[in-house]
């Protein structure tokens, strides 16, 4: 069974209606290690060795964070800078993450319609995530289609419930093997996978 590591980063979780709901039932799924990075490292003092050890012990690395300024909150960047070290994660001698999967769960206030060439944000989520995709690639990891939960500003609780259930389904499916990572790769977004599955 693949082991899942969720690296969750939200500097203001206590005020986030969406994310509190999203993580509520995730943390207890068997085979999942849930790490609240802002709780773990309030001083940004990332424990490199501990984090690398955790990476070695898991197969799917999930980054769950709000989409601040078209990117991740700074602790994620701090984590990437320090933990994905040259000679360990990348470089000719760095092969420790080879074959693992990189999955991003993102919440954004703006709706999906905005993240189009013709919309306010002018670029798609996938375009904005190119630096992460390339980081995963440099570390010889497979970048899975992100799960983007968008339009949170105006999201109703029913809609939030749908997203919540999809998120749970995704993680527990990956953890118990009912969803294989390879099944996801043909899609641009994990949402498309769910729509294709649910549409059947």
């Amino acid at each position: 069974m693949p082991r899942i590591l969720i690296l969750f980063a939200h500097p203001r979780l206590e005020k986030s209606r969406i994310n509190l709901q999203l993580i509520k039932d995730i943390t207890t799924i068997p085979g999942v290690t849930f790490r609240d990075l802002y709780e773990e490292y309030p001083d940004f003092d990332v424990d490199i060795k501990a984090e690398q050890q955790l990476l070695l012990e898991h197969d799917v690395i999930v980054f769950h964070h709000p989409f601040y300024w078209y990117s991740a909150p700074p602790l994620i960047k701090q984590w990437i800078d320090l933990v994905l070290a040259h000679g360990w994660a990348y470089g000719s001698a760095g092969r420790m993450l080879e074959g693992k999967f990189w999955l991003q769960i993102i919440t954004s206030g703006g709706p999906e319609s905005s993240y189009q060439a013709t919309g306010g944000a002018r670029f798609t989520i996938r375009e904005y995530l190119i630096p992460f995709e390339q980081t995963a690639r440099l570390c010889k990891m497979t970048f899975l289609p992100p799960l983007a939960i968008q339009g949170t500003h105006r999201m109703t609780s029913e809609e939030l419930g749908i997203h919540s259930r999809r998120y749970q389904k995704l993680i527990s499916g990956l953890a118990d093997g009912s969803i294989r990572s390879e099944e996801l790769t043909p899609f641009s977004y994990t949402k498309d996978y769910f729509e294709s599955v649910e549409g059947k």
Partner: peptide, 14 residues
């Protein structure tokens, strides 16, 4: 004294 992640020495060597 570390923080190798911000230190490009090993990268330069490679």
């Amino acid at each position: 004294e570390r923080d190798a992640g911000w230190d490009s020495d090993s990268l330069r060597e490679e």
